[in-house]
Amino acid sequence: MAKFRKNGKRSVAALSTASLPDIVFMLLFFFMSVTSMKETDYKVKIKLPAATEVKKLEKKSLVSYLYIGAPLSSFQAKYGTEPTLQLNDKISSIYDVAEYVDSERLKHDEAEVPLMTYSLKVDSDAKMGIVTDIKQELRKVQALKINYSTLKVERKGNN
C-alpha cells in the first residue's frame, strides 16, 4: 500500500515573501493619503470643545493655526499657568499676531491672501478674554476668515 504511505518528514516549500514589499507599500500609501503632517508640537494643553455643526477645513495649505491654552507643565515655570497663545513653535504674546499673519501671508500669492483661513485651536477651559483679544488683533490686520477648531459629535435627538 505504497499509495497511502506517509512520509515521516514532509518538506514544505518556502513561503515566498516577494509580495511583502508590495503589501507594505500599499499600507504606506494608504497612510500617506489619509493622514496629514503634524503642524507643530504643542507647548500648550489643548482639549478642543465639541460641536455638531462642524465643517471640514479645506485647502490645508491656506490654513494657519493659532493655539490657545494653558502651557504644558514643563513650560509653566517660564510662562505661568494662565492660557496663552502659541504661534508656530513658541509661546507668544497677542501682539505677535500681526507679525505672524504677515509672515503667513508672505508664503502665499497675493491672490490667495483673501482665501486664507485662521484656525483657532482653543482649549475648552480657556476664557473668552484672550480669544476676544486675538480676534481683535486679527481684525486689525484684516485677517477675517477664522475657524473655531472643534471635535465633531453627532446631534442629539432627532432635530
Partner: peptide
Amino acid sequence: VDQGLYRQLPPI
C-alpha cells in the same frame, strides 16, 4: 481631520 465652525469676522 481638522474641522470646526467657520466664522467671518467683521472688518474693524
